[in-house]
């Protein structure tokens, strides 16, 4: 890779642009593609190749292009996944750094100033706006996960409503089975149809049995990962099969 290409690529990544680095594996020439155009490198690409590159970016899938362009390797650099947490509570203190390690850009929304101090949350964006306003401004997309943690309907419900109107790939809400049932009742009364409500993961996270903030954070991040990759739900196996699998 040429240094000029590297500089351009790092600049695009810093500005959270979705770009692809295309390398001709036969001669080492390269092109950086941004919005369908080559912005660095000497490699000239055909229209079908450019089309394939756009596809790769959209599906976040690096790889060789289909033949006859199999000698062209496309490396996709999409902006990081995003996690929006509503409620700067104890679980958020565990979940935010874990999600950061997993590659998420974390934003925490909590209008209650005492909770959302920078000291409690290094390395994350803290917003003290009302959740629905803040979330509309964030423009949630298909690479965003939303998790509400306040237990307070005044904060969680408006946030969930905005999330349900978005393409967010994961929506989770903290609360017991009973709390969640009441929440669904309130949202249904607000006119949200059942098929939309079924997008909310509640009670939050995979059933791992943990109760501490860190354990709940692990269960939540695990469920987000499962949903992101479209993995099937984990099934309880009969004991003898379980033993064989180990």
């Amino acid at each position: 890779m040429k240094r000029a290409t590297l500089e351009r690529l790092q600049d695009a990544r810093a500005h959270k642009r979705a770009v692809a680095l295309v390398t001709d594996l036969e001669n080492g020439s390269e092109a950086l593609i941004d919005e369908g155009e080559a912005v660095a490198g000497a490699l000239v690409l055909s229209a079908p190749a450019l089309h394939g590159i756009e596809d790769a970016i959209r599906h976040d899938k690096s790889g060789r292009l289909p033949e006859p362009n199999g000698h062209l390797f496309v490396q996709v650099f999409n902006p990081p996944l995003r996690l929006v947490l509503v409620g700067a509570v104890h679980i958020a203190q565990a979940l935010a750094p874990m999600a950061e390690i997993a590659g998420y850009d974390v934003t925490i929304i909590d209008p209650r100033r005492a909770f959302g101090s920078d000291q409690r949350f290094p390395n994350v964006t803290l917003l003290s706006d009302w959740p629905d306003d803040a979330m509309r401004a964030l423009q949630l997309d298909h690479r965003t996960a939303v998790v509400t943690l306040t237990h307070d309907p005044k904060l969680d419900d408006p946030a969930l409503q905005v999330a349900l109107d978005s393409d967010a790939f994961y929506i989770g809400a903290l609360g017991s089975t009973r709390t969640h049932a009441k929440r669904l009742e309130r949202l249904a009364e607000a006119g949200i149809p059942d098929d939309k409500l079924s997008r909310i993961h509640g009670p939050l996270g995979l059933p791992l049995g943990g109760r501490s903030p860190a354990e709940i954070a692990i269960a939540t991040l695990a469920q987000m990962t499962q949903v992101l990759h479209g993995a099937p739900p984990l099934e309880k196996r009969p004991p003898e099969q379980k033993a064989a699998a180990v």
Binding site: P97, I101, Q119, P122, A214
Partner: peptide, 10 residues
């Protein structure tokens, strides 16, 4: 959990 270096160094 809130130690300043927790996330950035790992």
């Amino acid at each position: 959990v809130t130690a300043g270096e927790s996330a950035s160094t790992v």
